[in-house]
Simulated scan of single mutants.
Amino acid sequence: MESKLRYCFPLLALLGLAACSHKGPLAAATPAVVSPYAVTNKVYQNQADSFAHVLTLQQPALLTDSAGAQVPSQWVGTVNFGMRKPNYVIIHFTAQDSVQQTLHTFTITSTQVSAHYVIAKDGTVFHMVNDYLRANQAGLGKWSSVSDMNSCSIGIEIDNNGNEPYTDGQIKSLLILLDKLKRSYNIPTANFIGHQDWAPKRKPDPGPLFPWQKLAEKGFGYWSDEVLELPPDNFDYITALRLIGYDVSDVNAAIVAFKRHFVQTDNSPQMTQLDLNVLYNVSKKY
């Protein structure tokens, strides 16, 4: 029987953390600083309170058979359960002009998009969705056997328009954040991927300028070895792409996504000998 100490926090305390405040003489004497996101923070808190209420419901399932007769049912609370935890991290670029624009995009209902974290160019990290909750960040796609990535992943958006290098401050903060997430949720090394890895038919991020090798050196994803060997004559590169996790229903899109992540020298859908060598090497790590 597995013990999960990190799940021992009361659910209401976890979801209601943002509502905690210090009250006393010092607080009363200090002028209140109004957050520009005070309204959206309140909406978030109200929604979190609604989720917390649902989690505390203890009622039997209301079931009827085909004749309309009620099926006997009662609630018996188990002592062996925990909160669902993230098992993947999806990395994005924002493709917008500033972190302020992205924060605005994620705090209006009309966009219906969000992320758990946003990292500004100076390295500031904005936490926008509790790690245990579902953010609207991955969208449609497929990775290995996963078809609903939003339900099992944490999304990290990095302030970048898609055509510029990532800043040192961003990568430093990202590595610290990834280390925390990996340790907190025991996320496997292979499960740190990009948005394009997940959705190669429609997404280009985090792009060929993202330092995947540096992340792999820290244990967040894999990278090819320095010395590469030739794959065997019967090497099936489509099967190798699928083994890593790529959706190969559009092989060209999968090739481009793989090359942007693991090779980063060109964006063509053709596999060169170097690409095949890298793919052969990387696929053996999965």
Score class of each variant (00 low, 15 high):
6 R>Q: 14
9 F>V: 14
9 F>S: 13
9 F>P: 00
11 L>M: 12
12 L>S: 10
14 L>A: 10
15 L>G: 02
17 L>Y: 09
18 A>I: 05
20 C>M: 10
23 K>N: 08
27 A>H: 08
35 S>R: 05
39 V>T: 08
40 T>P: 00
42 K>R: 15
53 H>N: 11
54 V>N: 11
55 L>C: 14
56 T>V: 12
56 T>F: 07
59 Q>M: 13
61 A>W: 06
66 S>G: 05
69 A>L: 14
71 V>T: 12
79 V>F: 07
80 N>F: 11
83 M>Q: 12
92 H>C: 04
96 Q>A: 11
101 Q>N: 09
104 H>R: 13
106 F>Y: 15
107 T>L: 05
109 T>R: 08
110 S>M: 06
112 Q>E: 13
114 S>N: 13
115 A>V: 04
116 H>R: 07
117 Y>T: 05
119 I>K: 00
122 D>C: 09
122 D>I: 09
123 G>Y: 02
123 G>D: 03
124 T>K: 12
137 Q>M: 05
139 G>M: 05
141 G>A: 03
143 W>G: 00
146 V>Y: 01
149 M>L: 13
159 D>L: 00
164 E>H: 02
165 P>N: 11
167 T>P: 02
171 I>M: 07
177 L>S: 04
178 L>T: 01
181 L>I: 10
181 L>R: 04
186 N>I: 14
187 I>A: 08
187 I>N: 03
199 A>R: 03
199 A>F: 07
204 P>I: 15
205 D>H: 05
206 P>E: 04
206 P>Y: 01
208 P>W: 05
208 P>F: 11
210 F>S: 01
211 P>H: 06
211 P>G: 07
223 W>G: 01
225 D>S: 15
228 L>Y: 09
234 N>W: 04
236 D>A: 11
238 I>D: 09
238 I>L: 12
238 I>R: 05
239 T>K: 15
244 I>L: 14
248 V>W: 02
249 S>A: 14
256 V>N: 02
262 F>M: 08
268 S>D: 12
274 L>Q: 12
274 L>D: 05
276 L>H: 02
277 N>R: 09
280 Y>W: 13
281 N>D: 15
286 Y>K: 09
